[in-house]
Design a protein around this nucleic acid. Structure first.
Lengths: 206, 206
DNA sequence: TAGATTGTTAATCGATTAACAATC
DNA sequence: TAGATTGTTAATCGATTAACAATC
């Protein structure tokens, strides 16, 4: 099991590498990859070391092979089905990000309690009523739920997700949730990000 | 200057405390606040210690006063004007989050290159053309820019933001950006979050 | 009083960076 | 060859947690 920070960086390296490959560049040095991501070359080399891939002295890393090596480490063998809970602006934004991306992560269901949305196809994804969440997640073999609802519904949704046997939850609301040990949880809070930024800006007054 | 992690938690404590206050609870113990956020009571006490606020033995923290103390530490004295660059689904989601929230952070301008949007008011915010970004940011005294455009426009936008004299950038695209030392930068990448989650889910197969 | 709680220091844990041997 | 680069260990830095004195 690799450190979470390493996994994050590997995911980002891969995206950069794919772009670089598209430009026809076949090899890349650790310091080049580092510069793209505003980090040090040592860190890049260490991350790559951890996945057991090796570059060549004076030639760098083979872009295509490195992409494959990263994939072998961080991707799951089988496809992962994902559900979006709350298909408002944020839910649509995330769903659209995924659309058209070749990947083994697929958003295959949306849930909402707005009757105007239930039954429709939104951003390319079928929308179900929140009350059907447990059934659909089981039936469609969905392993990840992304919560993008208003903050007040979150506790109830977290409970339903737990009952459905989901494996991972990504919570984009401002309400922190508590779940059982065997579900992976990742929370991201935009308001906090912005407040953090303003704190560190204070000293940068001209 | 407090650690970034502490600032993040303080921002989140405050949100919880406001809800608790709204319910009429006037005091809270460190272990109660900790439970809301899935962390330890020691960490809560340490964070609060760092901002120089004290609770009372056997009584806990005065909720109202703690909220004020957090505000004194993390809020800026004057209002901060914010711009959203790219007013698609994600831009609208973030703008709506802020709408109606009493706060000294205000999104007062949006930028887009879609002529159908320019000149309109979207999610309560006036939308300008991206070409006017530098001028408007200077004129309206905007200190933070939030980038929510498609990834290919990002390099150009980062340059424009730098020219405009912006103090902080929050980048929600998948393209990492490089900026001068005196601009605060915070990047968040949803795709990476989801890939990280799938990595840690692997071992949770039933 | 005893038990619960705060505030704070010291120890531990984890992540980054420095240093450097190997070598093309 | 000399300089550039990788791979890896050791040192450093920062963040969390354990331990515990103080006291209501």
């Amino acid at each position: 099991m690799l450190p979470a920070k390493t996994i994050e960086r590997l995911s980002q390296y891969r995206r950069t590498l794919l772009q670089i490959l598209a430009k026809g560049k076949l090899h890349i040095f650790s310091h080049e990859l580092a510069e793209f991501h505003n980090i040090t070359a040592v860190q890049v080399r260490r991350d790559i070391m951890l996945i057991g891939y090796s570059g060549q002295l004076r030639k760098g890393y083979n872009v295509k092979k490195l992409i494959d090596a990263i994939g072998k480490t961080i991707d799951s063998k089988n496809d992962q089905n994902i559900a979006i809970i709350g298909i408002g602006n944020l839910g649509k934004a995330i769903t659209s990000y995924f659309n058209g991306k070749r990947s083994n992560l697929k958003i295959i269901a949306a849930f909402d309690r707005n009757p105007a949305k239930v039954g429709k196809v939104i951003s390319g994804v079928k929308c179900y009523h929140i009350n059907d969440l447990v059934d659909i997640i089981k039936k469609e073999n969905i392993s990840i739920g992304i919560i993008t609802t208003p903050p007040d519904n979150v506790i109830d949704i977290a409970e339903k997700l737990t009952m459905s046997g989901i494996k991972g939850i990504l919570n984009f609301t401002t309400t922190p949730i508590k779940i059982s040990q065997n579900i992976c949880l990742e929370e991201y809070d935009m308001i906090t990000s912005i407040e953090k930024l303003t704190y560190f800006i204070k000293d940068k007054n001209p």
